[in-house]
Design a protein around this nucleic acid. Sequence first.
RNA 1: GCGGGUGUGGCCGAGAGGCGAGGCACCGGCCUGCAAAGCCGUCAACGCGGGGUUCGAAUCCCGCCACUCGCUCCA
Length: 469
Amino acid sequence: MALALYDTETRTLREFTPLIPGHVSVYLCGATPQGAPHIGHVRSSVAFDVLRRWLLAHDLDVAFIRNVTDIEDKILTKAAAAGRPWWEWVYTYERAFESAYDILGVLPPSALPRATGHITQMIEMMQRLIDNGHAYASQGDVYFDVLSYPDYGRLSGHKLDDVQQGESAGEGKRDPRDFTLWKAEKPGEPSWPTPWGRGRPGWHIECSAMAEYYLGGSFDIHCGGMDLVFPHHENERAQARCAGDGFAQWWLHNGWVTMGGEKMSKSLGNVLSIPNVLKRVRPQELRYYLGSAHYRSMLEYSDTALDTAAKSYQGIERFVLDVATRAGSVPAGKWTDAFAAALDDDLAIPRALAEIHGVVHTGNKALDAGDVTAAAEAAGSVRAMLAILGVDPLDEHWAQPSQDASAAMSALDVMVRADLDRRQQARAEKNWSVADEVRDRLGAAGIAVTDTADGPQWSLEGERSEGRN
RNA sequence: GCGGGUGUGGCCGAGAGGCGAGGCACCGGCCUGCAAAGCCGUCAACGCGGGGUUCGAAUCCCGCCACUCGCUCCA
């Protein structure tokens, strides 16, 4: 295996070798569902979904854990402000996130652990940290003693001396930079019993505890957004290492989506929700767009860039569907060496896309030359490559017309066919005005007509593959 | 204050010393009754200033400018 991945901790591209041959363990910091998912959240899950698919393509057994932070300050504040129970609030948005992931074809994780379901593991880990002198309880809070861990700052590149005042100054802290493992109970907030009193988890301990529980003390890859490097991942690492774990061997971080040059975030109010984006393009097209920039680059969102990506994808899709029509079927084939080389090089999807376009071009030329066999071979290869990116147009995930929709399409086909027959008759008589009138009328109704070597075909605007011969 | 990142043709975006990725748009041609799609071809770039590298830098070094991020919740 020649896969190389950029590791944040060492700031280098390192050839990937799993701890246990044949197995890969991955932990992805999932969302804190306190509001609707936006395009930035989805970029992260899609980027690491491609990593997962590529690992699977290497015949590796992948354990992929993504957590849900279901207890946290903002959840409590927002739910309280809305007058709703915190657990209802977080569950509502957890569902919204999962739905967005499903729509985009993100493979479901091996497990989707929630923080509140792992209090036991957190207490156990905190006890270990206290026992070996890396944490202390104070006035019902539990803090991590940053000065007890000389390696603190290694992941993010921060020097301890340069770290400004950490989170809100607790009176019981030994050092202002110590961070909270456990927060003492406050009136009106949920709490759980611990040896140090009732309270609730801090943000960082949950991931260390859950990663250890599901993947063991040492695992292969830890993923998340670039904005989590400090303090979240730095703290996770400190906790786990001090608790005796080897923890993550690779740290992967994705760049964020920007709008107007600024990071998309709720606090800036420049978020673009998934349902809104999906009014503009189909989910496959959104996925394709997210891969058009390297996962570690920032992606500056614009409607035109999204539209451009959608058109680019449609060109590939059209090729595959045309071949499927001409050849009857297109069995998935094998990706090209250039494609594999691109993905092996830190998931260089932009380069992989260039390769896909190259194969599409070759296939179109074959199609032009009437060589359907060669075209089908190219299309099979394209399918295999698109499958790694999660956007194979012939994947059943993207073809899910309901019973009603299929019936409606069949009925529509009968009616459109009648018009097309009339138009063919007119064309045969070189009565172009009648032929164009029929085409224009169908077009106005959102039905696009194209003449091909195999006769006229129609499709609904924005749809593909419907109503074909 | 401390620590990062970015600046490529009309637009999006790869590349990272040497044969000018790819997409979208534009223009010309083929095909088509006309379109659409496809094919052939054209166009055009490396923020600014200066230097080094046994010849060559968008790519390395120095200086500058602009934009941007982290150090606080954040994919």
